[in-house]
Simulated assay, not measured.
Amino acid sequence: ITNWQPKHKLFFIKNYSDTEQSKRIDAEYFQPKYDEIINAIKAYKGGWGTLESLVTLKNSNFTPSDIKTYQYIALANIAGNGEITDCMTDEGQNLPTRARRKVNTGDVVVSSIEGSLSSIAIIGEEYNDALCSTGFHVINSNHLNSGTLLVLLKSFVGQLQLKKGCSGTILTAINQNAFSRILLPILPQAQQLQIQQKITESFELRKQSKQLLENAKRAVEIAIEQDESKAIQWLDAQLV
């Protein structure tokens, strides 16, 4: 499926029994492109599974203490590359009512809201025991590492299925049952390790670039407040 491109068809035929079984009557749900990607996954020689069989879904609500301080991750805090850019830090009594999911290092958070389905991120050590919005599905797995889950769910393999599973009127989203039926290929451990290493490297390089930017800003401040030689000395010391 490397060069496969989904094609939206203007007309197609489905049996009435299909609508009864799925309890859906919207035409988009039955687009042939969804069947094509699912059939391709099932044909993968390495094997496949549903999220229900491959991951642990952390869907229990957590009630924060009013006087304890927590980190809170919202949809807006998820970057396009799968990183968490920032978070809200406040006492439990001041957090939004949707701050009810506790996350841990290595978990993967997946947006359930249509329109932000690509908002998927890995929980790093700095956000261990943080809270996130109930607008996320929180998962981890013994079969697929966090980097592989991130890549698969952000690829068209995952995104098409997430979109297909969305339902609702005012706020369209993919519920837990539909989410658990998503199919993913089970990649070999060697390939998963390569993916995880690449993800880790990209995150580390991004952190380094952020630090270099902060150092440059501070050096400019020192140059203004003192002189350029002091700024250069300070900057050289940071690079050691």
Score class of each variant (00 low, 15 high):
8 H>P: 08
9 K>Q: 15
10 L>I: 10
10 L>H: 14
12 F>G: 06
12 F>R: 15
13 I>L: 14
14 K>H: 13
14 K>M: 15
14 K>P: 04
14 K>W: 12
14 K>A: 10
17 S>H: 14
19 T>N: 13
19 T>V: 15
19 T>D: 14
20 E>V: 13
21 Q>A: 14
22 S>L: 11
22 S>E: 12
22 S>H: 10
23 K>Y: 10
23 K>G: 08
25 I>Q: 13
27 A>W: 10
28 E>Q: 14
30 F>K: 07
32 P>R: 09
32 P>W: 08
32 P>I: 02
33 K>T: 08
33 K>E: 15
34 Y>A: 06
34 Y>P: 00
35 D>V: 07
35 D>W: 11
37 I>E: 03
38 I>A: 09
38 I>E: 14
38 I>S: 10
39 N>S: 15
39 N>I: 09
39 N>Q: 15
40 A>N: 13
41 I>F: 07
41 I>L: 03
42 K>M: 05
42 K>Y: 05
43 A>G: 09
44 Y>S: 00
46 G>N: 08
48 W>Q: 04
48 W>F: 07
49 G>A: 08
51 L>V: 02
51 L>I: 00
53 S>H: 11
55 V>K: 01
55 V>H: 00
55 V>S: 00
58 K>F: 10
59 N>W: 09
61 N>Y: 11
64 P>W: 11
65 S>H: 12
67 I>T: 11
68 K>R: 12
68 K>M: 08
69 T>V: 07
69 T>G: 09
69 T>C: 03
70 Y>F: 09
72 Y>P: 02
72 Y>I: 04
73 I>D: 00
75 L>C: 00
75 L>R: 03
76 A>H: 11
76 A>D: 11
76 A>R: 13
77 N>R: 12
78 I>Q: 06
79 A>N: 15
79 A>E: 14
79 A>H: 13
81 N>W: 04
81 N>D: 05
82 G>P: 01
82 G>A: 03
83 E>V: 06
83 E>N: 12
84 I>T: 09
87 C>S: 14
87 C>Y: 10
87 C>R: 09
88 M>Y: 12
89 T>N: 09
90 D>W: 13
94 N>W: 10
96 P>W: 04
96 P>N: 00
99 A>E: 05
99 A>Q: 07
100 R>Y: 04
101 R>L: 06
101 R>N: 01
101 R>D: 06
102 K>V: 04
104 N>Q: 04
105 T>Y: 04
105 T>K: 00
107 D>C: 07
108 V>T: 08
108 V>A: 01
108 V>I: 03
111 S>D: 02
112 S>K: 13
113 I>E: 05
114 E>T: 03
115 G>V: 07
117 L>I: 06
118 S>E: 11
119 S>W: 06
119 S>Y: 12
121 A>L: 07
123 I>Y: 01
123 I>C: 05
123 I>K: 05
124 G>W: 13
125 E>G: 03
125 E>P: 03
125 E>N: 06
125 E>C: 06
